[in-house]
Structures are given as structure tokens and as C-alpha cells.
């Protein structure tokens, strides 16, 4: 089958623009474009990759419904009766960690968005003395490895009396997270037509109003991408909370569950897996709530050097 016969004009219309370059891309894997066998092979390949990627998580879920003896006797399969009470056990232990992670991420990410929007806004729209120097001062942070500053930052927060509080996580997260956020947002703000701000100024808007009522509302897709990338980084951070948080009731998810298995509760394998499932859920839920904007933000090509 040739390329042309593979695509009727009706399909061309139905799929619009996207159809235009998909078939050409097909050339990369098999020269016979439009060959449905090639398409099938691609699906098989992609499904294999998807299944292999997901298998540990599927295994986690299956095991989370088992007692220890079910786990040892029926290692691979899903067996009845399902022991949902594993989740009750796990929830009682991990709920505080989840709450802590949510509080820290919510506050830190909100602050990052506000602080970096403001900086990105002025870098995108104004010329002012020292602009270049200040911009490179921000860019330069990217080069400083986190491990270099880990120790001295620890000593600093200890002297500031921040150890073992929520602020010890939030403030450094904002300081570090704003760097990439400013770089992304600056590019986006610069693409907003100057006329919009001009019009606002004529109507008597202050710069503050222009930033928060024009620039930010217009940048929602990129803002949500920036937010999710920051949340991901904070949600997964392991080392910093490990060294700065000692109180169990302030601990975040990563450290909470890292030592859950060997904790004083001596959980069974199924209960440990239930805890892993529960701690995995919040971001998945958040993602499905904001999926469209996030994928659009990522695939719009905002992330490139």
C-alpha cells in the first residue's frame, strides 16, 4: 500500500493538521508508510514498553491486597479474598506524611509562582540598570550543584533556628525552584503583545495590576506546567527533609515511606505496598485534573535549550 491510498481524503479532513505530517514521520520506522502491519508492530512495541514500565506498579497494587501468606503462596496472581484492610492500616500511618507533603508543596509552589512571575515579568518587559548582571546572577544558580550547598545550607538553617519546622523545607524550595520558573516564564511573558499592556496603562493600571491581571491570567498553561514541575521536584525530595526534619509529625512522604517497612509497626508486605499505593495517588489525581494543560505545556516546546 502506498502512502496516498493509505489515507483517504475523508480521513485527511477528519484529522486536520495533525494528519499532515504523521504519515511522513512513519517513514522513520518502516519505509512502507500506510502499511497497517507496520502500524501494528509499533503498537505491539509500545504496549510492551508500557507494560514493562508499569509492571512494578501493577505488582505493587496486586500485592497490596494480599496477606503475608497469600503473598508467599500466590506470588504472581491476584487472589481472593482481597484484603482492603491493608489500606486502613497503611492510611492510619501514612496520612500525616501525605498531609505534610501537600502542605509544603502547596505553600512552596504558590510562593514560587508569585515570586518568579514578578521577576520574570520585569525581565521580560523592562530595560533597567544592571538588568544583564542580575539575569546572569539568576542563570548562574543552575550551575551550582545542590550537594555543594547542602552542608552550608544545613548549617545556615540551624543557625536561623529553622530546623525541624515547615519553613526549613519551604524557603529553600522557593529559593531554588524559582530559578527555572523565571527562565520559563520570562520567555512566555515576552511573547505577550506589548499593546495589551499599553492599553492597560492608558486605562490607569499600575504595573502591579498589569502583572497580576494581564500577564499571569494569560499564562495559565505555562504556569501550570511550571507548577507541576516544581511540585514533582518537591514531592520527590529526599535528602533535604532527611537532614532537616527530625520530628515524625512533620516528615514528608519520601522519608516517611522509605523507612516504613522497617518501622516499629512491622508491617506485612501487603501493608507496605498499600502504603506505597496511597502515597502515589495524590499526584496522579492532580495530574488527571490538570492533564490537558500539562501535556500541552510540555509539548508546546517550552522546554528546550
Amino acid at each position: 500500500m502506498t502512502f496516498k491510498s493509505g489515507l483517504s481524503s475523508a480521513r485527511r479532513v477528519r484529522f486536520g493538521w495533525a494528519c499532515e505530517y504523521v504519515p511522513v514521520g512513519g517513514a522513520i520506522v518502516g519505509a512502507k508508510v500506510g502499511n497497517s502491519r507496520v502500524e501494528l508492530a509499533k503498537h505491539v512495541l509500545l504496549w510492551t514498553i508500557v507494560v514493562l514500565t508499569f509492571y512494578p506498579f501493577i505488582f505493587m497494587f496486586i500485592t497490596s491486597l494480599k496477606t503475608q501468606s497469600q503473598f508467599e503462596l500466590y506470588f504472581w496472581q491476584l487472589v481472593r479474598p482481597f484484603h482492603w484492610e491493608n489500606y486502613v492500616f497503611a492510611w492510619a500511618r501514612v496520612a500525616p506524611y501525605i498531609a505534610n507533603s501537600i502542605i509544603v508543596c502547596a505553600v512552596a509552589t504558590t510562593l514560587i509562582l508569585v515570586v518568579s512571575s514578578m521577576s520574570a515579568y520585569v525581565f521580560a518587559r523592562f530595560a533597567f540598570p544592571l538588568k544583564e548582571v542580575l539575569f546572569y546572577a539568576i542563570l548562574g544558580i543552575v550551575m551550582i550543584p545542590g550537594t555543594l550547598t547542602l552542608i552550608t545550607r544545613f548549617v545556615l538553617v540551624k543557625r536561623l533556628g529553622l530546623l525541624d519546622t515547615r519553613w526549613v523545607l519551604i524557603l529553600p524550595y522557593v529559593a531554588g525552584g524559582q530559578v527555572f520558573s523565571i527562565l520559563f516564564l520570562r520567555t512566555f511573558f515576552a511573547s505577550i503583545p506589548e499593546e495589551l499592556f499599553e492599553a492597560a496603562r492608558l486605562d490607569g493600571a499600575s504595573e502591579f495590576t498589569s502583572c497580576f491581571r494581564i500577564a499571569i491570567p494569560l499564562s495559565m498553561p505555562i504556569l501550570s506546567t511550571v507548577a507541576i514541575l516544581n511540585i514533582l521536584a518537591q514531592w520527590n525530595d529526599l535528602i533535604w527533609p532527611l537532614v532537616t526534619i527530625t520530628s515524625e509529625h512533620l516528615q514528608t512522604i519520601p522519608i516517611g515511606i522509605a523507612y516504613f517497612r522497617t518501622s516499629i509497626w512491622q508491617p506485612e508486605t501487603g501493608q507496605v505496598m498499600a502504603a506505597y499505593v496511597l502515597t502515589s495517588l495524590p499526584l496522579v489525581v492532580l495530574f488527571f485534573a490538570s492533564m490537558r494543560t500539562f501535556i500541552e505545556g510540555l509539548t508546546s516546546g517550552a522546554i528546550k535549550a
Binding site: 515570586v115 518568579s116 514578578m118 521577576s119 515579568y121 520585569v122 542580575l134 546572577a137 539568576i138 544558580i141 551550582i144 555543594l148 550547598t149 552542608i151 552550608t152 545550607r153 548549617v155 545556615l156 524557603l171 529553600p172 522557593v174 529559593a175 531554588g176 524559582q178 530559578v179 523565571i182 504595573e207 502583572c211
Partner: peptide
């Protein structure tokens, strides 16, 4: 507008780096 960014950067990034 730039003040919050630079206060945080100086305190939690540049000072620790120089100190290290």
C-alpha cells in the same frame, strides 16, 4: 519586584555556595 527573588537567592543559594 525583584527583591523577593534576590533575597531568597542570596540567603539560600549564594551564601551557602560561597560559604562552602
Amino acid at each position: 519586584f525583584l527583591a523577593p527573588t534576590f533575597v531568597l537567592l542570596l540567603l539560600f543559594e549564594y551564601y551557602p555556595a560561597v560559604s562552602a
